[in-house]
Design a protein around this nucleic acid. Sequence first.
DNA 1: TTCCATTCATGATACGTTTCATGAATTTTC
DNA 2: GAAAATTCATGAAACGTATCATGAATGGAA
Lengths: 329, 329
Amino acid sequence: MPKEKNSPTMADVAREAGVALGTVSRVINGQQVGEEFRNRVEEAIRRLGYQYNSSGRALRTGSTNTIAFIIPNTINPFFALLVHHVNIALEKRGCKMLLCFTEYDKSREAEFIQMARQNLVDGIIALTYNPSLSIPEGTPFVTIDRFFSSSVPCIASDNFGGGWLAAQKLKEFGCQSVAFIRVASTVTNEPVKRKDGFVSACVDLGLPFEVMALEDGQPFSEIEHFLASHMQNGKLSFDGLFIGTDSLAWRIIRLLRGMGIRVPEDVQVIGFDGIRMFGDMEYTVSTIVQPVQEIAETCVSTVLSKHLSSVPSLICLPVTYACGGTTKA
Amino acid sequence: MPKEKNSPTMADVAREAGVALGTVSRVINGQQVGEEFRNRVEEAIRRLGYQYNSSGRALRTGSTNTIAFIIPNTINPFFALLVHHVNIALEKRGCKMLLCFTEYDKSREAEFIQMARQNLVDGIIALTYNPSLSIPEGTPFVTIDRFFSSSVPCIASDNFGGGWLAAQKLKEFGCQSVAFIRVASTVTNEPVKRKDGFVSACVDLGLPFEVMALEDGQPFSEIEHFLASHMQNGKLSFDGLFIGTDSLAWRIIRLLRGMGIRVPEDVQVIGFDGIRMFGDMEYTVSTIVQPVQEIAETCVSTVLSKHLSSVPSLICLPVTYACGGTTKA
DNA sequence: TTCCATTCATGATACGTTTCATGAATTTTC
DNA sequence: GAAAATTCATGAAACGTATCATGAATGGAA
């Protein structure tokens, strides 16, 4: 069932302008064409309201100017922010974005990658949760926050530096003793460095610390237990808290306040990501801000780069600290 | 530059299986094919790792199984939620989604719609901010919350009913006097009914009310003035507040608390949309919840429906109330 | 004036798919 | 058992584009 609406084609333009098909093509692609012919063709294009057909072009050139962006969802504001900036970066280069939501489902991640083989996309940017994902050959592939192998470029924040910065800030704000809480996972191999950086800084700075990880599958209530077990006479045994994610921090702060603990008076909290609600100017919690725009920009320029093989396999981008009211500065 | 990676084509499969090209096609499209031939072809497909080429298919069929979703951004959690559910609904029907962010830019809205004419998409779902947008003929087009004409289906929440419900709830929770604050705009023609429903209910229920609109271009500080001018001895002149959007409610609540007004003790606040932060279970503010999933589902089934002309031109879906802690229940 | 180099429009071809008309082989019907 | 009906594989054509080899026309150099 060929489309009922038959828009004009290059052949129509050629006929209208009284030129050959190839000439029309060269006008459209901005190649050298004689003045008079170019005018005739452009006039015909205008008269007919011609628009190029992308299926035909894609079939011929083997390229769709489309990049797939594979990401769990858009509900998490950090992901939403990433989608936003990736889209901008792609558009700046005349590319379209095909968004694929995995919902953390490994088989869906694999399916989407198959898609690439159907020539649907020219490249893939992925934030995946399947550590044993098989990366397709022949299609440019770039990951965010996941290191697979040295042949697959990985773009990430400076997670180690971010962890370090968090500890340093807590110390600076007068904390005597601190803790780190995160959701552990076998797949998030780069973000785990947040812990490494934090621990490393605590050691260097002589700051007593504790680390708690919610392992894969453990319920959120484990965190309640952890907090409860660190209470004495209505006070926590630490006065600084670094949390692996703003999202988690948000929930934990609500928990703390429910326990009668004041933030930031009793305990100062720093999250990670740099989330602002509703595109607000203010941060939701004090946080280590990921340079989302730079990450997106780097992903796009990398995946579109002609010489993917000469690109570094791990690119770390600098983070910054921002106060969101859950710390003293 | 035809793609360097030359994947196997249907012709390769045909040769490998020793059958005709047409036969391979019919196997792939699940049409009637003799048992033996089918086996031979399937075996060949497996052996060669054949995947269909979507450009070729699109060129031939004139259909891409892709729907464009035009929306300002994904930063606003309500939009993010919409994107999420539209994607799910599309995928359920074997369609892909092409996301287009307009950033509220009218010319970009128009550009994206042009795209449709390049046969790139089979239909368009749009949440636009250009009231004089020209809707393309020949491409199925569905809007969210914007009524253009009776020939363009519009899917929306029951905005009027939502406004009504908000007033009713405030009354029920003991409010003596209420106010409504919203961002006015010439384009959001359906959501304006939130005000109508609210006002209508206040009149019917005998609830004193006031309405404040932030006109296009006015700064947020106008709202501060409004609130300040309704303060007397540190108390507001109303004890119930309905706000056109959760996003706006979020900012206003922060403002109120900054002014020393307790929420919900001094003033109860209800927003609109049904936003939950970070995919949390709890609502950010008490709110009128839009049935986002149903909206998405309806948009998709409508835009894909073969007989678009026989579809109602305005579909309103029921809303519900949910407590987010900024009201007494 | 002749010849060569350059410019540039032409027409044919291929990209990978679906579909249509054709005809061979098989089954059904009387 | 012959004719008609059915089943089903075949090969060719078409979708709209970009590119390649071809050749005509122009301009410059000898």
